[in-house]
Design a protein around this nucleic acid. Structure first.
Lengths: 248, 248
DNA sequence: CACTTGAACCTGTCTATACAACTTCGAGGT
DNA sequence: ACCTCGAAGTTGTATAGACAGGTTCAAGTG
């Protein structure tokens, strides 16, 4: 994990400066953020750099900016934003709730032909497969059915997934380069319904996530694919964002 | 609709320049895009401006950039991206299919208390309410249940919604400032299931969309709220995006 | 032939400066 | 008391210049 004063792009330092104060609770929704010129003096970077950081945070829904007035912490970043929050434990904790995980199994198995294509490995290879239930305040909130490319995380099976989530572990082992999401509504299978303790006739929100790691040269390898099942009545996916018009 | 050489931010001209060539088919997935310096000469703007335009298109999934190599049209912008494509007709046409709309009703009705809050009007006011089925190649793909704030679009009820979609009309009448989405999985009511010609036991993907118009001073008014129902088996919502790391 | 080196080009980032448009607020005039 | 005007602060955008790090490819070297 990068330290706060670590190298890297300066505009990310601007973003961290603001995000840290939001996450710590020092700045609350509606509060005014330091102006661009104040941040220039505070952080010792140019105004264009500050502007880029704040503009990205605005696009991501954290801030609201009014020309001629100032920059403010956005009122409500709606709950459940897993298209950006990759780690469900973080998301649950940010709601002030407790997270617990139960491992159903984690094993190595030969990959099926279609999954081989999805994972970008040659058919016949063995891949890692884990099934985990995530609880929010002791109520099941997500069933995580995940396949991992062994090339990206060779020690995957020896991780204690009740202490660290697969997302957390994979983020430590390999930085990820790209994420792709598909959202669908499905009826749960009996197994899914049992693990999520769902009543009959309740649908699931299914989030299919593929993550890519930077690989050797020009060809990026898929690191992992996950099917994340959410009970429909306990979850909704929010995505507020400012519009970028200009499309024809 | 703004003309191609119209005023407005120059970085949007860069984006339009590229998007127009993508939409017209002149540039296909995998093709190389003009380099930043070439676009500087072509469009007569500075490199920073070109960079911002291309960077935003990359964030939105249209382009892929490789440092030291070049900029390329992204391979597959996955189907169904209604968090950015606001108009379903555009989306269907971009898949090369035909769009048709059938108006169930469009009327004025007193607003319910909770909907008044959601729309940001005083309870007791009348609002516009329309119900429309959208077809892709003559198969129902979306049921659009929409409430419109009369202040934002006074002539809403006199529009021919089988020729122009509500999204299109509202975009013409009032520029929108913010969009908020919530995605849920639900079981359809009998009415929804009938309009979408869905079998029993099939869930719906429900997209709740609220759009805001820029209003007088400091208080932005909600222009419209829409509940968009998609049959689960005929639709999935895709969201590829490049990761912005740096969050704690 | 195999290898190294360097030029040319690409994207990514940062800076200093500038101007425009907007809001707020107070000073001054009617 | 009311209105107008302008200063000061804010965000939004655009520019020219600079450097770093990556890739490609050809020329030159062994």
């Amino acid at each position: 994990m990068p330290k706060s004063g670590s190298p890297g792009p300066l505009y990310k330092k601007v973003k961290s400066f603001v995000l840290d104060r939001i996450h710590s609770g020092e700045w609350r929704p509606g509060d005014r953020v330091l102006s661009e010129n104040e941040l220039v003096r505070e952080l010792g970077v140019s105004r264009m750099t500050v502007n880029r950081g704040l503009r990205e945070l605005t696009d991501e829904g954290y801030l609201e900016r009014i020309a001629g007035v100032g920059t403010f912490i956005a009122q409500s970043r709606s709950q459940g934003h897993p298209l950006e929050v990759l780690n469900i434990a973080d998301e649950i904790h940010s709601r002030g709730n407790t997270h617990r995980a139960r491992l159903i199994y984690a094993l190595e198995e030969p990959v099926s032909p279609d999954r081989a294509v999805a994972l970008g490995v040659v058919p016949g290879t063995s891949v890692f497969h884990s099934l985990i239930v995530h609880y929010e305040n002791d109520r099941p909130i997500q069933l995580e059915d995940r396949y991992v490319n062994p090339a990206a995380a060779p020690d995957y099976l020896s991780v204690d997934f009740e202490r660290i989530t697969p997302s957390e572990y994979l983020l430590e082992v390999a930085p990820l380069k790209k994420v792709e999401h598909m959202v669908r509504a499905v009826m749960p299978t009996d197994e899914v319904r049992r693990h999520l303790e769902m009543p009959r006739d309740e649908p699931c929100l299914l989030l299919v996530r593929r993550t890519w790691s930077p690989a050797s040269t020009t060809k990026a390898a898929v690191a992992s694919t996950a099917r994340l099942y959410y009970p429909a009545t306990r979850f909704q996916l929010g995505a507020p964002f400012s519009v970028r018009t200009g499309d024809s």
